[in-house]
Design a protein around this nucleic acid. Structure first.
Lengths: 335, 335
DNA sequence: GTGAAAGCGCTAACAT
DNA sequence: ATGTTAGCGCTTTCAC
């Protein structure tokens, strides 16, 4: 068995309170400090955080619930977030709910039983039913990427409408008028916003939106393949296509290859996220890149802030909104 | 505060042991079962796994330490593993050590303090120093992908030498003789094995290996870019290149694009992992694909097995070895 | 500054 | 089958 504080107490002849105080930054006489440290060394003592957690009612553990770990956007954010949280002593339990509302709910319940101190969530259920019970515990919730009207909590979002408008402007300035869009699931806020950006861009050009140019995808690779095929089939006069997340971008590129289309000669394209993939495309893809490291750091920062302010969490809800960036490649032809 | 078993005991008039027994599959009189379930419902009771963990000395939590979450191979394995473990009631704490030995050691210590029930590790430190202390606890360790001589524990590996030989055979059969390789870090076992496969393949053809065709990369995208550039520059007569992990494959493709080389007319290529990326390449890339879902399920299965057999872990060490598969594309030209 | 003792929520041994 | 009780390893009053 591992050594306990009792063992240290016995060995040093000190009381439990002194040892505990030593570990919690209290004042301990120099002589005793040395004794304690020797004992720790010899007994290979390590604080038992489970016991501490039971007593303090805090596990120093954050739960993260995301739709797909196996998704660059999510993976990048988690990598960075976990880094920040761990450096503050917090462990991160990641639950991948496979874009399934039922599994998402299960995950939150699971984390709740594990008594995590807070939950970070990129929500699948846009009504937030999965979070309502957890919220009653008063523990902090921070939402990433997608907002939920019904849940009052902090969130870190990207200005998707602006990002989409920016991308569309690139097309318009290059002379494109018939621009297709491979959008996301209609109930997801990011998809709504990106589509809204697409529509506003047309409006600002005083051009009508042609509904056949809009494809509602599902944010998966296969969805991107299908979307591209359908848009191309339905719109012989389409000269460009805007793809609204990374997985579908990969799918659209696969579609282009399998249809043996030439980019940008036959079709111009702007994709989403993952600069490295964009560079690996030939010609290099122009993309909208979301600021994943900033998102991650913002989220982790807000969570840590809420954690340390404790019950005083009556302060205003934070709703950070970050800007995406266009990274130019050679996949848009001037016509 | 959340309800406790005491609250349920009070409300039902039963003793603590009965409630506990109810939750642990013991026999409880039908009448009482109903009463308990009503109380649970009304009080919104949830087992406190922290308290349970303190008592049982088991946290139902597995620690996972990997070099880069932000790496498809790792992400795919973790997704699948976490799924299996969670369905058995285990939480997974993932620590990304950024391919840094120091951070890897920190991660293991962190998990040790968190009292995880076992550790799954894709090791960076090939001497396993980071695991020695944890191993003394007697808790199970399962290694993924890379073996460590000094540590006696279970492992799930891929037959890398065979995988590399298979890939090389594709080149030889297409008539290639001057084949470059972008290998991994020399101290990592997978890299050694893949390189060994490359050498054996040449041997079996009774052809000498030309050292200038060997590049030692670092398993990163940027390393792949550099490797390709150097091999091309140093070997004007090279007709094919074998890239030995996914990140470097992406890098090599970037390199090819930036040098404006034509695949497979000017250079044939076989990459590693990630079928979707291979499909997104034009022409479709031929790749060696590792069986990530099988690896993940094997690892999770072994861990669960060790966990349930408890101290009886004196059984033989398991060393699973799985086969990779070649997925043909159009990136190898017959000459 | 330090020691004694209570108690966090649970499980398990023992008694009934 | 159920109740009583001790104790897992820690923190935290409360004395001294």
């Amino acid at each position: 068995m591992a050594a306990t504080m009792k063992d240290i107490a016995r060995r040093t002849g000190l009381g439990l309170a002194t040892i505990s105080s030593y570990f919690n930054g209290g004042n301990v006489r120099e002589k005793n400090r040395v004794k304690i440290e020797e004992a720790i060394e010899e007994l290979h003592y390590e604080v038992n955080e489970v016991a501490r957690g039971l007593k303090t009612n805090a596990t120093k553990t954050i739960g993260v619930v995301i739709p797909e770990l196996n998704n660059t956007f999510c993976a990048e954010i988690i990598t960075e977030m976990e880094d920040v949280l761990r450096s503050h002593g917090y462990a991160t339990i990641v639950c991948d709910c496979r874009t399934d509302k039922k599994l998402e709910r299960d995950a939150v319940e699971f984390l709740s039983r594990k008594r995590v101190d807070g939950i970070i969530n990129m929500p699948v259920d846009t009504e937030g039913n999965h979070l309502k019970k957890f919220q009653k515990t008063g523990k902090p919730i921070v939402l990433i990427d997608r907002k939920i009207q019904e849940i009052s909590c902090d969130s870190v979002l990207v200005d998707n409408e602006k990002a989409a408008e920016d991308a569309m402007r690139v097309f318009f300035q290059a002379g494109h008028r018939k621009i297709g869009i491979i959008g996301g699931p209609e109930e997801i806020s990011t998809a709504q916003e990106r589509l809204q950006g697409y529509r506003s861009a047309y409006e600002k050009e005083n051009l009508p939106v042609q509904e056949s140019l809009i494809y509602h995808g599902d944010y998966t690779i296969q969805g991107g393949v299908k979307g591209l095929e359908k848009l191309v089939a339905d719109n012989p006069d389409m000269t460009a296509v805007f793809v609204t997340n990374y997985e579908m971008t990969m799918g659209a590129v696969i579609g282009v290859n399998e249809l043996a289309l030439k980019i940008p000669e036959q079709l111009s394209m702007i994709g989403f996220d993952n600069l490295q993939f964009a560079r690996a495309c030939n010609p290099k893809l122009t993309i909208v890149a979301q600021p994943t490291p900033s998102i991650a750091r913002e989220v982790a920062g807000i969570m840590l802030k809420r954690l340390e302010e404790g019950d005083a969490g009556n302060t205003e809800r934070i709703a950070e909104k970050l800007d995406a960036e266009i990274i130019m490649g050679k996949s848009v032809r001037a016509i």
